[in-house]
Nucleic acid binder design. Structure first.
Lengths: 259, 259
DNA sequence: CGATTGGACTCCTCTAGACGACTATGTATC
DNA sequence: GATACATAGTCGTCTAGAGGAGTCCAATCG
């Protein structure tokens, strides 16, 4: 049985924090292993002799830290660490593309996990301001918008939206749901735009409710956003890809020269 | 006055979410500008005709998204967007170092904001396993550990800990609180280790309570961690720097060749 | 044996109220 | 004029209870 201690009313921390600390201690010590069920609210109420809301406040603290997830009707569980995907900075090397594989599937294969893509949608729209700027287009210029969701072993890990100038995408498989072998980068190069380099802008934040739903994550789990712009050998931007990744599922790796 | 609408009991969203949505709407629309005070709990209770806990739950939702911060005795305020620092991938170019400036101060100057460093501590310890591995040292080998906190315009934005093998750091200013002109990278090069490149590993997560305190951030604000390893021209790792950044204060920029 | 039903258990949402602590402001006093 | 104090308003914490909804499993019925 779990040693949860008791509430110390002389402690300057409020009871709910003390309860949270006890549980947190067991989680970090491994006494409560990933995937394991925490004591139920009723049990905690009984053990600590506090009101229901106090126990719930403690649990909410842990949820806010992303340590536990509550499942309605089942219980509260220690969040199981999902497989971490390391994204190396050479993941868009042309050598990988020539196998006829899209970048995501290449990485996924390297980790030996089953990767899938769903919720693919393609449309042609006016470019949002942020995208137009990065593509050196006038605001409102038409771009092909490709959205999709990536899953690793069935678990959603990333949603991505690509924007390609219509002048490049028109008449190619880029406008189809299936972009063909090698993915859209292969199609872009077939249009005479040899890819030279990418810039990536990385930041992190809390997800919007819509993102929480699409990525199937609870409150308290942050996301990383990565906005990648692809340039051809003329330094012309040919694609902007806006991705939202479940933060604990990724480590991004970059190599930076000291110049 | 703010148009907050009313609770729709036929809506499938619970009241507290509807209240949160109304407030969120005003925040994203700018009707509630950054720094502005939200209606008080009492006002929201009166307006929506709900219990206090319901209103508090709505506010907690917004706090969890990092949209608002509560200040005891004053009110709840829209989080003012802090100045964002863009970290370009060439920020460690030798050209910058030769001015005698440390990297952080160079970047900060570029944005015209006052940057400071405090809570500097230096010690010599056994290398933690993760660090030893990156430095190609045996576990437990001695390393010089340098910790410090960075502030931008007086606001904490990053805490950082560097690990340098004792064989390189011994007898240099690296072991002093003031590492001298150009920072520790200048000292490392003076020891005959010409820097060639860095690898950076980026991820994001929720902060620990200690990090929350050091960075002065409330619940619901994620952090990015960036672990940088510096290599000399012999591909020998000469430094590991573990940084924890307030996520909304940074955008990391990288340039990646297409090969 | 298979399908359905019921109950136990779980977390979710909400109500109504209480006291405490912190902040700001105005007032009275020195 | 400066200090001390009272007060109102704010959020923080806690109590005690209620009904709802999702999950699971065992007992029951066909």
């Amino acid at each position: 049985m779990l040693d949860l201690g008791v509430i110390d009313r002389t402690d300057d921390r409020p009871p709910y924090r003390q309860i949270a600390a006890q549980l947190r201690r067991h989680i970090s010590a491994g006494t409560l292993a990933p995937g394991e069920k925490l004591p139920s609210e009723s049990e905690l109420i009984e053990h600590f002799g506090v009101a229901r809301m106090t126990v719930r406040q403690a649990l909410q603290e842990l949820r806010g830290e992303g340590l536990v997830v509550a499942e309605h009707g089942k219980g509260v569980f220690v969040r199981s660490a999902p497989p971490v995907r390391r994204l190396a900075s050479d993941r868009f090397a042309r050598a990988h593309r020539q196998d006829g594989k899209a970048a995501f599937l290449v990485e996924a294969e390297a980790t030996g996990r089953k990767a899938t893509v769903d919720q693919i949608s393609v449309s042609t729209e006016a470019a949002p301001a942020e995208v137009a700027e990065r593509l050196h287009l006038e605001e409102g210029a038409r771009v092909v918008v490709r959205s999709r969701r990536y899953l690793s072993a069935g678990v959603p890990v990333e949603i991505a939206t690509s924007y390609i100038p219509e002048s490049i995408a028109a008449g190619t498989a880029i406008t189809s749901t299936d972009s063909g072998p090698g993915g859209i980068y292969a199609r872009i190069e077939e249009q005479g735009h040899e890819l030279a380099h990418f810039t990536e802008e990385v930041t992190a934040r809390m997800p919007t409710p819509e993102e929480r739903k699409a990525l199937q994550i609870g409150a308290g789990v942050p996301v990383m956003t990565l906005i990648r712009t692809a340039y051809d050998t003329d330094e012309t931007p040919v694609e902007v890809c806006d991705t939202v990744k479940v933060s604990h599922a990724y480590v991004l790796e970059y190599d930076v020269p000291a110049r």
